[in-house]
């Protein structure tokens, strides 16, 4: 196993189209750890995963994210992947005419790995999770069922061998057997390769398979509570009532980050709304 890794998220804030979604996220995931993130719809879970991977359209308004000390937010998405980050998307994108193997070979080549290993590795990983070989020949995610897309994501994760993987609702769409197979594969990576996992999910089902060390509740753009696996069971009973209030979340003025390095222009991040000035006085 290589040296342990650490994804450190500090005070991460982000907006979409001028609207603050992440209100200051603090979270650290280390090699071999499994962290679950649960939270109501629209609370910002996917936003967190997108911001970490560098999806265009988000404006970073504060905080940092470091992978083994490397400032992720300053990197292009492919460089984040090269740095060891992987995102299994909630809604994997269809890319017509592009074969999975071609993508992974291009990725291997860019990282200086031997791309000729890709086809056999893909085949072996697909077999491990019971993913039909025939589906591998199709264009990426095109005409795949919801569950097949998630298995496809798992195959890619296993072939690319990242240091830290974010799984955004990997369980949604997977049938019971597929869920178990994917979870087993990921669990074995945490043990054998020291993979660190940030698993976003709505269901404790994934967590009984994946056995998280820590469970976080994300609501209103913040980690509201962190606990052990028992927290997931508690949520099954109580729901999120304690973490969401009726009032729409107004942004407290004091939470504004006035650190010039947090300015999107300073980080080089693309921001969708040119008028969303993070330094503007929200009360003006």
């Amino acid at each position: 196993m290589s040296a342990p890794s650490e994804l450190r998220i500090e005070g991460l804030r982000a907006a979409v189209k001028g609207r603050q979604i992440l209100q200051g996220i603090d979270l650290t995931v280390r090699s071999g750890e499994v962290h679950a993130v649960m939270g109501p719809n629209g609370s910002g879970k996917s936003t967190l995963s997108h911001v970490l991977m560098g999806k265009p359209g988000y404006e970073i308004t504060g905080g940092r994210a470091l992978l083994d000390g490397v400032d992720l937010l300053a990197l292009a998405p492919w460089e984040r992947s090269r740095a060891g980050l992987f995102l299994a998307m909630q809604y994997p994108i269809e890319v017509p005419g592009v074969a999975l193997v071609d993508v992974l070979e291009a990725s291997f080549a860019a990282m200086g790995h031997d791309a000729s290993l890709v086809p056999s590795s893909v085949r072996a990983e697909a077999e491990r999770i019971g993913f039909d070989d025939k589906l591998l020949g199709r264009a990426l995610n095109v005409d795949l069922s919801g569950g097949e897309k998630k298995r496809n994501e798992t195959v890619q994760l296993a072939v690319l061998r990242p240091r830290i993987a974010i799984l955004d609702e990997l369980d949604s769409g997977l049938d019971v057997d597929a869920l178990r197979a994917c979870a087993r594969r990921i669990e074995s990576m945490t043990q054998a390769d020291g993979l660190g996992v940030l698993a976003i999910t709505h269901y404790s089902r994934l967590l009984t398979e994946l056995k998280p060390d820590v469970v976080h509740i994300l609501a209103k753009g913040r980690i509201q509570r962190t606990g052990g696996p028992e927290l997931a069971e508690e949520l099954e009973r109580t729901g999120y009532a304690d973490y969401v209030d009726e009032e729409p979340a107004a942004e407290p003025a004091k939470a504004r980050v006035l650190d010039p390095s947090a300015h999107p222009a300073a980080s080089g991040a693309a921001f969708g709304d040119a008028f969303a000035d993070p330094f503007a006085d929200p009360l003006a």
Partner: peptide
């Protein structure tokens, strides 16, 4: 589509 490929480690021009 470009982001999806980039997130797998593919540089933008290759993507």
């Amino acid at each position: 589509q470009r982001f999806y490929l980039e997130s797998r480690g593919v540089p933008p021009e290759v993507a």
